[in-house]
Amino acid sequence: MSEDIILDIKDLQTSFYLDDFEVKAVDGVSFKLPKGKTIGIVGESGSGKSITALSILRLLDHPGKVKGGEINFKGRDLTTLTDKEIRQIRGNEISMIFQEPMTSLNPVYTIGQQIRETLKVHQGLDKENGTKKAIELLKLVGIPSPDKRVKQYPHELSGGMRQRVMIAMALACNPDLLIADEPTTALDVTIQAQILDLINDLQDRLGMSVIMITHDLGVVAETCDYVAVMYGGKVVEYQDVKSLFRNPKHPYTVGLLKSIPRHDTDVDELEPIRGSVPSPKDMPKGCRFAPRCPFATELCMEELPSLDHVEGESEVRCWIYTDHWDGDAEVKAHGPKRVAQSN
C-alpha cells in the first residue's frame, strides 16, 4: 500500500481475566487503515468487534486487558503508552462515539458543559471561548438553534440529536481518527440515514479517518472503503469494500451475505449458516468457524489457519487458499461463493 497508513494493528490480543480462567475476547486482530479512509469492522455478537475498538483507546472495563500485539497510530505504538499519554490522545487525536446515544451523555450536565470539558482538557479553552466553540460544533453537526441547545440537558433531546451531540463532542479537537461503535444501531432507519450522511459529509470536509464498527452489512456497503470481517475474536477476512461484496473469500463472509434478507431484491430462500455463534469461553480448537462451515475438513477442525494475503491487498484466514487444502477441489478452484450457490 503506497498510501499513508494512519493506523496499523498487528495481532491484537485482548483478554478478560475472570476468577479462574481467561476469556480471549480478541485473539488475533490485524488490519491497516489508510489516512482519510473508512474501515468497517463487521461481525455478529461476540465476534470481538467492540472490544477491538475499546482496546485501541484502552477503554476496557475491568478485568479486560490488552495482552499482546501492536496498535501503531501515526508512528507510535499505543500499547506502550502510559495512562497519561493515552489520555492526551483520547478525545483529541482519536475520538469515539457509542451505540447508545440515550445513555452516553451525562444526565446531570448540560450539552454545553460536556462539550466544553473536552475543549478545556485538550486546548485549555475558558468558559466563554469554549461555549462559542461548542455552539459552532453543534452547528457543524446540524443541530438547529445551537445557542439554545447548548444550555439544555440531554433528556431534552431526541436520540438522533443526542448522537449528533456525541459527534460534535468527538469532533471538538479535530481528531485524526473517529471510532464509531455501532453509532446507528439504536436509531430508526430515517434517523440512521441522517447520521450516516453526516459522518460521511464530515469526513469529506475534515479529512479524518473512520473505524465503523457494525453488524449491518448495508451500513458497511454505504460508508466504508475497507472491511475487516471478524469471527470468534479474529479477523477472518480483510478486503476493500467492492471486492468483499463482489468476491467474498471466507466461507463465513459468504454465508453472512447469503443470510441477509434484502429489501432491494426478492430472495426465495435465505441460506442461513447452520448452528450458532460460539461462546468465547468455549472456542473451537482449529478454525473458529469450522463447526459451522460447509467445507470444513479435519485440518480445519484441528488447526488454526493464519491471516494471509491472497490477491492484491486482500487477506483471508482460511485453509482453502493454502497449499495444505485437502478438501473439495472445486471450492479451491471456484471459491466458496460459487460452490455454495450451486448446492
Binding site: I89, R90, S95, S104
Partner: peptide, 10 residues
C-alpha cells in the same frame, strides 16, 4: 455509558 464517554474524552 456516560462514564465511558467521559474517559473517552481524555
Amino acid at each position: 455509558d456516560y462514564i465511558r464517554t467521559a474517559r473517552a474524552k481524555g
